[in-house]
Every structure is written in structure tokens, then in C-alpha cells.
Amino acid sequence: MSVPYLGFGMGLRTCYFEQIISERPAIDWFEIISENYFVSGGKPWYYLSQIKEQYPIVMHGVSMSIGSTDDINTDYLKQLKRTIARVNPAWVSDHLCFSALGDFNSHDLLPMPYTEEALNHLTQRISQVQDYLERPMIFENVSSYLTYKQSHMTEWEFLAQLHKQTGCQFLLDINNVYVSARNHSFSAMDYLNAIPKESIAQIHLAGHQDFDSHIIDTHDEPVCDAVWSLFSEFSQQVSAVSTMIERDDNFPPLAELLAELEHAKALTRTHWG
């Protein structure tokens, strides 16, 4: 699987709809939250139908729960497949995690245990989902606040093995790597250095809340200097990867996000062009 290089993008959020349509800012592409477009009409579709005429669109889901031990939710996949057909995205992604078990839904993205059993489980699930959707999926690393006693490999070893077994590619969220590294006291660069470079299809850059003893991935702050530094160093190891700024709350004027996007471009200009 290979995905096109789209350049530097941004998460499409409702508060910027009208400004994007009227001003057509210098953004290469937008990422939408898949589930927001499972409805047949309404405000999101009214604006998206106009925006997707001017910009490439990718889809990013939050509810697949690919790691769950429950049967895959076929109703969810039907809605996703219908939305994919309507949007015609450059690619589709979700999170490498689980969020539901039986009747319990955490409404959060819970990390997988890093075991051979989990690897084999994900390999089967990814194949099942991709066969149903009739297209490959990209999966994002999540931030984490706990670890499992059963885990016998690191997260980066787990991802490398998953890529080897399935060929799937990853949406590398560098902020999530930083958050998990701080919370679990490992080296973020050790993680990034170990990820198979050919497996990276997209990059997320985002902000978080730092409470000294731990960090919470909130997407409501600017990208911090430490994450910029990680991105700058990692970008020198890979060919150009579609990269975006992700903001989900405490929305600033669009100009501030555009400035972050320009900073990302500046950090990669000498080696990505």
C-alpha cells in the first residue's frame, strides 16, 4: 500500500467552515472525523461538499475499536463504507486501540497489551475490516496512561511486528509518542528511531496538558517545543510524509493554526523540499 503525499494539512472543524470557503487559505488538505459525516445531510455535509471541491480530504475515525475482542460492528462498517463512497477520501484511518468491551464503552482510546496474542488478534481484525471496506486502512498510535503486566515487548516493537505481519501503515502521532514517553519514562526518540520508516503514511502534530507528574493528550494547546523538536529530528529520517496540525478544543483564530503549519513546513524545507 502507498498513499499520495498531500503536503501540509489541518483537521477540518466546524468553527472554520465559513472562513475556509470564503478565504481558501493556503492549506494543502483537510482531515475530517469520519463519524461526524455518518448522517445523510445537515451542516457538516453542506460545508464539506463545497470544501472537498477545493481541497483533498482524508477520513479519520475514532470508533472502530479495532482491538476489541467483541465481534466487529458491521453496522458501523456499513456506515463507514457509505461515507467513504460519498467523500472519496485520499485514505482512511482509525486508532490502534479498543474502546468497547461488551456493553461497556469507555469513550476513550485504550491501548493494546503488547503481546503475540494481541498481534495475531489485530492481524485478523485488520484483514477482516479491509476486506469489508475493499480498501487498506491506516492506524494511529494512541497516547497511553497505563501499561499491562502481560506486555512482553515495547510499543514500537509491537508496531514493527504488526507492520511486518499485515503490511499496514501508520498515522504517526508525534504528540502521542511524546505523551506516552513522558508518562512511562521511555525515550521518545528510541520509539521514533525504531518505527519502520516505510510504514509511516501520515503524521499528526498536536498539543497537550502538562501536569508535571503526567501529561494528558487534549489537543487544546499549541504544539510544544519538545514535540516540534521530535518532529524536526524524525522528519530528517523519512521521505516527505503528509503532515497536519490537529486541534479539537480551545480553538484559536485560524491564523494561529496556519502559523503552526508554516512552522512545520519550515522545519522540513531543507530535506522535504
Score class of each variant (00 low, 15 high):
Y5E: 10
F8H: 03
A201E: 04
D94L: 02
K164W: 11
N88D: 02
H263A: 11
L258K: 13
T268P: 05
S242Y: 04
T270K: 15
M244L: 15
G167Q: 08
E233W: 10
L162V: 04
S106T: 14
P196F: 03
F186M: 02
T83N: 07
N120D: 09
E262T: 15
Q19L: 12
R135I: 14
G207L: 04
T243Q: 01
D173H: 00
Y55P: 00
T270F: 11
P44I: 09
E116K: 13
L159G: 06
N36P: 03
Q161F: 12
I126A: 02
E256L: 15
F211H: 15
D75A: 13
M112N: 14
F139E: 01
F139L: 14
E53F: 10
S65A: 11
L119S: 03
S232R: 15
M112I: 13
M10W: 09
G167F: 04
A26Q: 14
W272H: 03
Y47K: 10
C97L: 09
L171R: 01
G102C: 07
S34W: 10
D210N: 14
Q50E: 10
P252I: 01
H95R: 11
I138G: 06
D71C: 12
G42D: 10
A85V: 13
G167S: 06
E233V: 11
K164H: 15
D225G: 09
E155Y: 02
I216M: 13
R269Q: 14
C168D: 08
R269N: 10
V241P: 04
E116P: 00
L110Q: 05
P196L: 04
D217Q: 08
I216G: 11
K197R: 12
M10E: 02
G273F: 07
H208M: 11
E157A: 10
F139T: 08
K52Y: 00
Y46A: 13
L159F: 01
Y47C: 11
R82A: 15
V142S: 05
N36I: 09
I51L: 05
Y37L: 08
N105C: 12
